[in-house]
Computed example of a mutant assay.
Amino acid sequence: MKQSIYFLLTFTSFILNAQQQYFPQSTASWETISYQEAGLDADKMDDVVAFAKANEYKGSRDLRIAILDGFKKEPFHEILGPTKKRGGPAGMILKNGKIVKAWGDVNRVDMTFSVTKSFLSTVAGIALDKGLIASENDTVANYVWDGTFAGKQNSQITWSQLLQQNSAWQGELYGVKDWADRPPRDGDVDDWQYAQPHKPGTVMEYNDVRVNVLAYSLLQVHRKPLPVVLKENIMDPIGASITWRWKGYDNAWETVDGLQMKSVTGGGHSGAGMFINTTDMARFGLLFINNGNWNGKQLISREFIDRALTPSTPNPNYGYMWWLNNADGSRHWNGVGENVFYAAGFGGNFIIVDREHDLVIVTRWLEPSKVEEFMQLITAAID
């Protein structure tokens, strides 16, 4: 019932805002509006920006160092793909598509870590919209028959379970074993290594190896490098810059139809992933606040977006690689509306979509523990 009310509210908001929605044609001509025009308290919004600048992610700006320190508890963890030194705090806030406020260097290209997962989910949506995948409830083994999904455990796995990160896939990909990726904080990693696997679809486990299995599987379905699929179907139509790059591990080369193609990653905790600037992230969020429609052209179906934002059974705060601010789950921002969903990445990278207030918020290199307070400040500024 709650989910039905949510979709009714967002659809009503979409209809009401359709006439006033703005779509930037280029970064050079992106229109701005004042706090007053956006219905935001100016003094409180100044506090929001000051808060973002004052609470920079504490990790090293040399992201190679930050990654190795952040994941030092993982057995055998190493850098497998490219990294890049980052800039300082940056962000943008959009209202009805127009810029209310921007801070920092919004044109600087930086790693964005697990925000990449929401781009990967979108590539899966493209495959579904094109009929390359008949249903996300199909088992992946019916599409990827090279042994990646062989065996009693892996043959059960569906596309939706990969998208919700509850697949419990077992194996090794590009030299990384699933059991060695993001082990439990407590207990002996050996216990997890030999533990009985969960039934697919029953337990969410944040695990980059399994996310990368999804990327590999989508490469087999699209038969094109996923950055090319994303560029042609999403990034070019929304007017993104030419500066973003989606990278894979150094050894992640596959031969598809006789051509060498790189299989990309869904995150960057061993390097690689999406390298992108703040403005391009904001455009991506603007596409989703408009239910996949960009200036009258439907780039990804509303039906897929609705399913992507449906809470999964094991975790009510997670859909298809988007986080949901659902009060029924443990990852809920108090004092912030439940109609908010977001992409989140290591180091404090966020694309936050508030459909109720028609806000898209991008914040980068914000200390992750401070994002709830950051969003509470924005909520308090709404007039």
Rank of each mutant, 00 (worst) to 15 (best):
G267P: 04
L214D: 11
A272N: 13
Y249V: 02
H222Y: 05
M204I: 11
L287H: 07
R245H: 09
V209T: 15
P225K: 06
P227E: 10
N233C: 07
T265H: 11
P227K: 09
V229H: 05
G273K: 05
A215F: 08
M281C: 12
V221S: 01
P225C: 01
I242R: 09
V256T: 03
Y206E: 12
S241Y: 09
S263D: 09
Y206C: 10
I276L: 04
L219F: 05
N212I: 01
L214C: 11
G239A: 13
N212W: 04
F275E: 09
A272V: 12
A240N: 03
H269T: 14
G285A: 06
H269L: 15
R245W: 00
T279C: 02
M274E: 02
P227L: 14
M204S: 11
R210F: 01
Y249A: 12
P227F: 10
Y216E: 11
N251A: 15
N212P: 06
P227D: 14
S270T: 12
N251H: 12
R223C: 00
L287T: 01
R223Y: 02
N233I: 07
L259W: 02
L214Q: 11
V209N: 05
K262L: 14
Y206G: 04
T202Y: 07
F275K: 03
L286A: 13
R245M: 07
V228M: 13
S270M: 12
S217P: 10
M204P: 03
Q260E: 15
I234P: 08
T255K: 13
T243I: 00
I289D: 07
R210K: 15
E232Y: 08
H269V: 14
V256K: 03
D236F: 02
L218H: 04
T279Q: 14
Y216G: 01
L218F: 08
N233Y: 01
N251K: 13
W253K: 14
H222P: 01
D208R: 02
V228K: 14
M235D: 06
I242K: 11
L230W: 07
P237C: 04
V213G: 09
D250H: 10
L287C: 09
R223T: 08
E254W: 03
M204D: 01
R245T: 14
I238R: 02
T278Q: 00
W246K: 01
H222L: 10
T265P: 11
